[in-house]
């Protein structure tokens, strides 16, 4: 637990001094929402709940891919990764710390994306956003779990930046379907019980990929 907290604290302090990841992710989310508005030309209001939900999840996938890559590549400079691997902290702990860091950066970007979405799609700051929160949190957690594991692979492969989305997006499909549907319901003003089936799928996805990452990370992490 000590090692976990230490690695996470280091990542968060690094971020609070430079802010590189979060600022990039927030800017990217803003840009994606602008692109989606141009591409889909929504009328705005609750009638466009489905479109808005889709735009949010596209932003989540892009920001997640970059966020997970950032938390691992940040270590490649100055042999930091070697130092981490030599330290007594085991690889599963390293995975958890990196995954939580990626999750936090994604959550910040998502929160900004939600605010931007409310403005661009002419919605209201009301109870609907509170119902949206657990859906987005579960989605971000699942994507962070998946992408942190895969980023350890893609970071060590030639042209790995291209590989990460090719591997991560098809694997993320079940959470994407569930997330878009649940977010659409939440933004349309339906109660939590209306999309509990989708929340269950999101939870199952998160449990699966958190355990997969925890068990398999030691096989893929390393340095060349």
């Amino acid at each position: 637990m000590g090692a976990f907290a230490a690695i996470l604290r280091k990542d968060l302090r690094l971020e609070s001094r430079g802010g590189e990841s979060t600022i990039t992710l927030v800017a990217l989310s803003l840009l994606i929402l602008v692109v989606m508005v141009f591409a889909l030309n929504p009328a705005g209001g609750a009638g466009d709940a489905g479109t808005a939900a889709g735009a949010l999840w596209v932003a989540l996938i892009f920001s997640g891919t970059i966020g997970a890559t950032r938390v691992l590549t940040a270590e490649s400079a100055n042999g930091c990764l070697r130092a981490l691997l030599l330290s007594p902290a085991d690889r599963a702990t390293l995975y958890c710390a990196k995954m939580v860091a990626a999750f936090i950066f994604m959550t910040v970007a998502e929160a900004a994306a939600v605010v931007i979405m409310v403005l661009f799609f002419n919605m209201d700051f009301d109870i609907r956003l509170a119902r949206l929160a657990p859906v987005l949190a579960l989605g971000a957690l699942g994507f962070a779990a998946l992408a942190t594991l895969l980023a350890a692979i893609s970071g060590r492969v030639r042209a790995g930046d291209l590989l990460l989305p090719l591997l991560a997006v098809p694997l993320f499909v079940p959470a994407l379907i569930a997330g878009v549907k649940a977010s659409g319901s939440a933004l349309a003003g339906e109660p939590l019980s209306a999309f509990s089936e989708w929340l269950k799928i999101l939870i199952a996805f998160d449990v699966l990929f958190l355990s997969a990452g925890y068990l398999l990370f030691e096989h893929v992490i390393g340095e060349d």
Partner: peptide
């Protein structure tokens, strides 16, 4: 999970 989610879809 893919099968379940897509079937619900």
């Amino acid at each position: 999970i893919i099968i379940v989610s897509v079937r619900l879809w």
